Amino acid sequence: MLGGISIWQLLIVLGIIILVFGTKKLRNVGTDLGGAVKGFKKAVHEDEKDTDKPDADQPQSKVSHDEAGNTYDVQAEEKAKQKAENNDERK
């Protein structure tokens, strides 16, 4: 079969491995190995996706901000709402 190894010999080796490590430990190793393979495949796929872009070696262009003074501070608005709610609760 596989270089002179029969199915019975493989089953005996598998049985010894299960006795030594236990099924829970083997399940954890299998899960970790599967996650590592999945992460590797994802990284390779993302790398292929990045190399397909024609602008990968080109420097990024500069962005100009023509509208000065039109910023919006979300945190300041949230703080103002909280103050208003606290004032309403106190009344």
Rank of each mutant, 00 (worst) to 15 (best):
L33S: 12
A76K: 12
G39Y: 11
K49T: 04
K81L: 10
K83P: 00
A43N: 15
N70A: 08
G3F: 04
S64E: 12
E77I: 15
E48N: 07
A76G: 13
L11W: 09
E78H: 01
A43T: 11
V37G: 13
T23V: 14
A36E: 03
K41F: 11
G4K: 13
G30L: 05
S6V: 08
N28K: 10
I5D: 03
V13A: 09
P59K: 02
T71N: 10
K79G: 06
D52F: 09
D57H: 07
M1W: 02
I17N: 04
D52T: 10
D52Y: 14
E46F: 05
L33A: 15
E77K: 08
N70Q: 14
G34K: 11
V20H: 12
A36G: 04
N70S: 12
K91C: 03
E48D: 06
K38L: 05
V74L: 15
L19K: 15
A80K: 15
A36R: 06
N86Q: 02
E85A: 08
S61C: 00
I12Y: 09
K62A: 12
S6R: 14
N87F: 01
T51A: 09
Q75K: 08
G4M: 12
T51L: 08
N87H: 02
L10Q: 09
V20G: 04
E67Y: 04
E46D: 15
A80H: 11
P59S: 03
L33I: 13
K38W: 04
I5T: 01
E89S: 09
G15C: 04
K62R: 05
L2R: 04
I18E: 14
K49Y: 07
E46C: 07
L26V: 04
G3S: 13
H65Q: 10
E46P: 00
K24F: 01
L14M: 13
I5G: 00
K81G: 02
V20S: 10
L19Q: 15
K81V: 06
G34I: 13
T31C: 01
A68R: 06
D88E: 12
T23M: 11
Y72E: 09
D50K: 07
M1E: 02
K81W: 03
S64R: 12
N87V: 03
N87W: 01
K38M: 04
A76Q: 08
H65W: 09
E85D: 12
G69Q: 08
V13C: 03
V13Q: 04
F21T: 02
A43E: 15
K38G: 06
K25R: 07
K91E: 10
Q9S: 14
I16C: 10
V29L: 12
R27L: 14
I17A: 11
G30N: 07
Q75S: 07
F21K: 06
F40E: 10
D50C: 05
G30Q: 05
Y72R: 03
G3R: 09
Q9P: 06
